[in-house]
């Protein structure tokens, strides 16, 4: 079965401009053969990443661009290797992302970066068994002392033993890959356990629509959208 990135590689070679919708994996936007934006329901959007931290506007150009690049890389990790559905996805020539930040990414760079990230994840903790189940902290430390990063601390603190890593990523406004990396590190350190009542196998993996999430402040969201439009 072919992956999304093989289809995109063909479009990139033709210097295509437009959008490729691949439900439920996500949507890709190209501008003259380069990736203008990627969306994936498993990963928080740029707006979500920026509004989750409650700062109304006031982002510098570098911060906004770093944020957009982070969101595109995050979506790429899950969207590019996804299998193409049986029905050929629709390409809409000329369709631009909204808001259009005018940033562009080389597809080959994104594909290479995804491979590196996959290897990095496997190196930390080779098992994927905790990737899609509720994050469940261990009741006791498996030793006397442990060191955690800022993000690992946030994950442990916001775990309700129901939310999966992808759901915590959205709640915390952090890239899904970063949360997965932290979960693997916590698992390797013995700070997480397999939940007692795992969800039905595959359910979290296949879910295309994320569950209801805490709403972003509409004023903050509007300010962020304006800032992104002004990146041009």
């Amino acid at each position: 079965m072919a992956a999304v990135h093989t289809l995109l590689t063909g479009l990139a070679r033709e210097h295509a401009t437009g959008s490729l919708n691949v439900p439920p994996a996500g949507k890709a936007y190209l501008r003259e053969g380069r990736i203008a934006h990627l969306e994936c329901p498993r990963t928080p959007s740029v707006e979500r990443l920026l509004t989750a931290h409650g700062r109304a506007g006031g982002y510098s150009r570098a911060e906004l661009e770093f944020c957009v690049a982070g969101a595109v890389l995050d979506a790429a990790y899950f969207l590019l290797p996804a299998e193409l559905p049986a029905a050929r996805p629709k390409f809409r020539p000329g369709e631009c992302p909204r808001p259009d930040t005018r940033l562009e990414f080389e597809l080959a760079w994104l594909v290479g970066e995804c491979a590196r990230r996959r290897a990095q994840l496997a190196q930390i903790w080779s098992s994927a068994e905790l990737d899609d189940v509720p994050v469940t902290p261990a009741a006791r430390l498996p030793g006397h002392r442990a060191t955690v990063s800022a993000l690992e601390w946030e994950i442990l603190l916001s775990s309700d033993r129901v939310a999966t890593p992808a759901e915590l990523a959205d709640r915390l406004g952090q890239p899904a890959y970063s949360v997965l990396l932290a979960v693997r590190r916590l698992a390797a350190a013995g700070l997480l356990v397999a939940p007692l009542m795992p969800r039905r196998r595959g359910r979290a993996l296949d879910r295309a629509v994320p569950p209801a999430l805490p709403q972003s402040d509409p004023n903050v969201l509007a300010a962020v959208k304006r800032a992104l439009e002004e990146l041009e």
Binding site: S60, A62, E65, A69, E104, F105, E106, W109
Partner: peptide, 13 residues
Amino acid sequence: LYAASVLALDDCL
């Protein structure tokens, strides 16, 4: 410059 148009980070470099 990898992402090729992440301008502010390019300027920084």
